[in-house]
Simulated assay, not measured.
Amino acid sequence: MSKSAPSSPPWAETAKFAAAQEALKYVPASMSIGLGTGSTSSLFIQLLAEHARKNNLQLKCTATSKKSEELAKSLGLNVVELGQLDSIDLAVDGADQVDSRRRLIKGYGGAHTREKVVEYATKRLLIISDHSKKSKKLDKPVPVEFLPFAQKRVEEGLKSLGAKDVQLRKNADGTPFSTDNGFFMFHADFGEIKNPKKLEEQINGIEGVLENGLFAKRPADLVIFGQADGSAKTMGN
């Protein structure tokens, strides 16, 4: 995991922008909104800030990472702590894989724990992504955030659940990647995940695990897939 991610195909930015722009249609004049983390979420935050200024929207935003919080504040959005909100009307975030039942694998941006806290509490979860993230099944490696002290125990626990390969995520210089929470992260490859909800619960049952990137207990309500031609297609409601 120390290698940098491969460059995106030429159409990817167009598709991400299309999804982020389409998501603005679901933001009313006044609401509380959870802001996701990642490249597509960053595009949405930028568009949301401009949309809010032009239309004088009354928004209260809570962010799922320090990076998203800093970006939102720099653009003039009203960002508050999660505990200051009585409820979250809408959360908008990206995903690394979306299956036909709108279950997700998330966390390649390293923020899935805070994302899950916000997105399992929201009244409506809207996922924005380019169309390449759509899949009939979930089979990408699952990010697992864990206490560094428990690294060996967590690795053994993941393998006992069927992980074929468990890789410690690292920075470019070879040091362990650290999340906003100060924890380390594994990417655990289970191949095709037959029962995502069960595996989500089992991984979280391993001593030392903080949270994992399976979002199966609470699938997305609506997914917007940006297309290479700049259009957008939706799944869900």
Results as ranks from 00 to 15, higher is better:
Val117Asn: 05
Val27Ser: 02
Ile127Pro: 00
Phe190Met: 06
Ala19Ile: 05
Pro9Gln: 12
Lys73Ala: 10
Val98Ile: 15
Leu214Glu: 05
Ala228Gln: 08
Ser2Cys: 09
Pro176Val: 13
Gln97Trp: 04
Met235Ala: 06
Ser7Asp: 08
Leu168Lys: 09
Glu119Ile: 04
Ala18Arg: 00
Glu156Arg: 05
Ile224Cys: 02
Leu75Met: 12
Asp180Cys: 15
Asn55His: 12
Asn78His: 13
Ala121Tyr: 12
Leu35His: 03
Ser30Met: 07
Ser132Trp: 00
Asp86Glu: 15
Glu119Phe: 08
Thr64Ile: 05
Gly226Val: 04
Gly110Ser: 10
Leu77Gln: 05
Ala121Met: 14
Tyr108Ala: 06
Pro10Glu: 14
Ser231Arg: 06
Thr175Met: 12
Ala49Asn: 12
Lys123Gln: 15
Lys217Gln: 15
Gly213Leu: 06
Asn195Arg: 12
Ser132Tyr: 01
Ser8Cys: 07
Val223Asn: 02
Gly36Phe: 01
Leu158Lys: 05
Arg153Lys: 10
Glu192Ala: 11
Ser129Phe: 00
Ile88His: 02
Ala91Leu: 05
Lys140Asn: 07
Ala150Ser: 15
Lys133Leu: 04
Lys133Val: 02
Phe183Arg: 13
Arg218Ile: 13
Gln97Ile: 03
Asp180Met: 14
Asn212Lys: 07
Ala163Arg: 03
Asp89Arg: 04
Lys123Asn: 15
Asn237Tyr: 06
Thr64Arg: 02
Ser132Asn: 01
Asn237Arg: 08
Tyr120Lys: 13
Val223His: 00
Leu24Trp: 02
Leu75Arg: 07
Phe149Asp: 11
Asp173Ala: 14
Pro6Thr: 11
Gly226His: 03
Gln202Ala: 09
Tyr120Cys: 14
Gly76Gln: 08
Ser132Asp: 01
Phe177Ile: 11
Lys137Gly: 05
Ile224Gln: 00
Ser129Met: 01
Lys67Pro: 02
Leu90Arg: 02
Met31Gly: 03
Ser160Phe: 10
Pro148Tyr: 11
Ser178Gly: 05
